[in-house]
Nucleic acid binder design. Structure first.
Lengths: 337, 337
DNA sequence: TTGAAAGCGCTACCAT
DNA sequence: ATGGTAGCGCTTTCAA
């Protein structure tokens, strides 16, 4: 219960109280087996009495393992990455590591800053949601020897490792689903600007799959500015204006799809009879409220857990079979297609 | 560009290359004004050449300021706290601090663990979403002298500081809104279990406001298990079974309200004509899809930014006027009431 | 304006 | 099974 003048109880204080040396206290904490039971109990009592909390930063400085993993996320809002971060954090804590988080707002300059800041903590691993990095960041990262895991995507040449799925294939899968359900003139609605590279990948897969069936006029709209639902609404409007006979729309996100659905309602279009609408992400309410949104489900938590495990493994000397781990995706067919 | 055998360039390496001592390098980093321009440039060149990234943990060990702030969040999923964490992280990084994150899944045992783990980093501040802590955690926290900010609530006796709003008053405000729009027999739907203390506070405010107008039969249901929307649906069903003349339902969250709306639809009840339905949170889609959900909006980002600023200020010696900062809330009237 | 020495709290290494 | 010594990379304090 005693509080030192410095405010923090040190290992030395515990050692003194237990009548042992610092290193014995350290062993009780890190390798209890190497300490005789009686001594161990005495040390543990001292720890409890003093309310001692070991200084991990000091420990890390000596041992050269920070037990910190950094995650650089574009944003938590929109909930795309929220479950991934939950999974990442949970798995790390189970293994005595902690999670350092930074947001980038889809800016690669901020990403570079965040990466540099994290490297200042000498992290045991780094997780990145973006895969478009500044040259500077790439070099710093490569030189640092810190295990890097890029997530939510499977770049052709990952910096270190990758855990995600093929956005391209997901787009293609949705195109095939729409074709299989009888649609012949599907369009794509994405968003312009702000790191929508993943959306573009989905579009490319979508367009390629259509092209294989002879449908080569790539119908697409990508409104900028406004909320995602507003963009979805405008996207559908734009598509219909230019290609009035469009019979299906694949939106790059569920939020966009929601906007498109609402716009369809306003225009008196019946879904899915007059037009099919599909989203991406399978957000929390996609199946609710009579919505029944057809969409693509990504195992977000698993991405986080897998990325964490990968870092843990690599640091334990276990080399993974592959630098890329594909967690896959699933087309969830509901009632809007 | 050179990489030491250890993998990390140290301040000593930079000093050597620039032909100065370590401390001069340190000054260039922390207090550039105290170094002659010529020397400064030479040091900066060396830093760039070597790709030097200062070790913050080592720096913190000396300076006794970690520049880390910890946040213990129940969960990121459900998006309640996502924007708060975004705001917190953004404000911290602007000021050269980093965010350490831990999730608790609404378990106060995990919270205690997380708090202890964070204290191991000697954080410059700690942010907690829960306000029901184990006795152990409270004591450890109080003894640590780390500035603690509890958020999303305004406890009567905060451990350190609090940034949030009155859940009680928010419930009361919604009751008054329902009464003002002509409802006379409103009920409450919450969820059982898992840290729903905040929901209970809303209920209490709700019930008290009704009692003041003579409406004293506290109608409420709190289904457990299942998704939140499923619970909302069952909650409405339970309320209607017991009190068939209920003419309004205030749900403890928007997800619950969504479920209630869907259940109302299934029962052929018109909203708001036959029954008014209100939620809490103003989640992303509350105003979309013709939904027009009446709800309560909480300035989540601002809570995060304010908590960060509070910690920064306290550490800079600025005492805030009050230990509790009320960011308020807003009843958003749409078309379901 | 710059530097030398000491030390932050811990662990690695080598003894005993 | 336990301890002494020497750092980890940085900042503080005091000198020059």
């Amino acid at each position: 219960m005693a509080v030192e003048s410095s405010g923090w109880v040190t290992m030395g204080d515990v050692a003194e109280r237990a009548g042992v040396s610092k290193i014995t206290v350290s062993r009780v904490l890190r390798a209890p087996d190497k300490v005789r039971e009686e001594t161990r109990d005495r040390v543990r009592a001292a720890i409890a009495d003093l309310g001692y909390v070991p200084d991990e930063a000091a420990g890390g400085l000596s041992s050269r393992r920070s037990r910190i993993v950094g995650a650089v996320i574009s944003t938590l809002a929109g909930s795309t990455f929220a479950s991934t971060v939950d999974g990442l954090g949970a798995r790390l804590r189970q293994n005595g590591h902690q999670l350092l988080l930074a947001g980038t707002d889809y800016s690669s300059a901020k990403e570079a800053d965040a990466v540099a800041a994290m490297l200042g903590r000498r992290p045991d691993g780094l997780v990145l949601t973006s895969t478009s990095h500044t040259e500077d960041a790439r070099r710093t990262l490569a030189a640092s020897r810190v295990p890097v895991v890029e997530i939510w995507e499977l770049p052709a040449e990952p910096i270190g490792y990758a855990v995600g799925f093929s956005n391209h294939d997901a787009g293609a899968a949705m195109a095939r689903h729409l074709l299989a359900t009888g649609r012949r003139r599907p369009a794509f609605v994405g968003t312009a600007g702000e790191g929508d590279r993943r959306g573009r990948l989905r579009y490319e897969g979508f367009a390629e799959a259509l092209a294989q069936t002879g449908t080569t006029d790539a119908r697409a709209a990508a409104p900028s500015a406004g909320t995602h639902t507003a963009r979805g609404a405008r996207g559908l409007a734009a598509v219909l204006e230019r290609w009035p006979d469009t019979d299906a729309v694949f939106c790059a996100s569920d939020a966009l799809a929601l906007g498109a659905l609402s716009e369809a309602g306003r225009r008196g279009l019946r879904v899915p009879d007059d037009i099919a609408i599909a989203g991406f992400g399978d957000f929390e309410f996609a199946g609710e409220f009579g919505l029944g949104l057809t969409t693509v489900r990504i195992p977000g938590i698993r991405i986080g857990e897998t990325a964490a495990q990968l870092i843990l493994d690599v640091n334990a000397g276990i080399r993974p079979d592959s630098r890329s781990i594909d967690v896959g995706f699933e087309v969830v067919e509901r009632s809007t297609t």
